[in-house]
Simulated assay, not measured.
Amino acid sequence: MIINRFDTTPTVLNTFIAEIRDVGVQKDAMRFRRNIERIGEVLGYEMSKTLTYREKEITTPLGSKKILGCTDQLVLCSVLRAGLPLHHGILNYFDAAENAFISAYRHHPNNSDDFEVVVKYFAAPSLENKVLVLTDPMLATGKTLENVLNVLKEHGTPKKIHIISVIGSKAGGEKVKEVFPKDTHLWIAAIDDKLSSRGYIVPGLGDAGDLSYGIKL
Rank of each mutant, 00 (worst) to 15 (best):
A140F: 11
R106K: 10
V42W: 13
K216C: 06
I36Y: 04
H155E: 00
A123C: 07
D95I: 07
Q73I: 09
I20V: 11
H87C: 04
D22P: 08
G63D: 09
V131S: 14
V151Y: 14
K170S: 05
E19L: 10
S212E: 00
H88A: 11
E146H: 14
A104R: 04
I90E: 11
E46W: 12
A208L: 07
K65F: 05
E174A: 09
G69T: 07
L86E: 02
V42Q: 06
E37I: 03
I167F: 07
P10D: 11
S165C: 15
M47N: 01
G89H: 08
S126T: 15
N4K: 14
N92F: 00
T157C: 05
Q26W: 04
V133P: 04
T184C: 11
I58K: 00
M47F: 07
H185P: 01
I20C: 08
D72P: 02
H162D: 10
V23P: 15
G156F: 03
G69N: 04
T71H: 01
K177G: 13
P203S: 00
I17L: 15
T11S: 15
E128R: 13
L86Y: 09
T50V: 02
K120R: 15
G89K: 07
E19D: 12
S197M: 06
P85W: 02
V42F: 15
R33D: 00
N150R: 15
F16N: 07
S165W: 06
F32Y: 13
R198Q: 14
Y45F: 15
N14P: 03
P10C: 06
H185I: 03
I36K: 09
I102G: 01
R38K: 12
D193E: 14
Y213G: 03
N129V: 01
P109Y: 03
K27V: 08
I164E: 03
L149S: 13
G214D: 04
K182H: 03
R81C: 05
T59L: 09
R33I: 09
L134Q: 10
I67P: 08
P158M: 07
P181C: 06
A190R: 12
C70Y: 03
S126N: 01
L149P: 05
T144F: 09
H107N: 14
E37M: 06
L217D: 13
D183Q: 10
F180Q: 02
F122I: 13
E128Y: 06
A189P: 08
V119R: 05
S197A: 10
S64T: 14
I39V: 11
S126R: 11
I167V: 09
E146R: 09
S212M: 08
L74K: 06
T52K: 12
K175W: 04
P181H: 08
V202N: 03
D28Y: 02
L68N: 14
K143S: 14
P109S: 06
V133K: 08
P158L: 05
T141K: 07
E41M: 12
D114P: 00
L211N: 11
K120G: 00
I167E: 00
S165Y: 02
L84N: 06
C77Y: 07
H87P: 00
G83E: 12
E116S: 10
Y93V: 04
M30H: 11
A171G: 01
L205I: 15
L186Q: 01
M47K: 07
L76A: 11
L62V: 13
K182T: 05
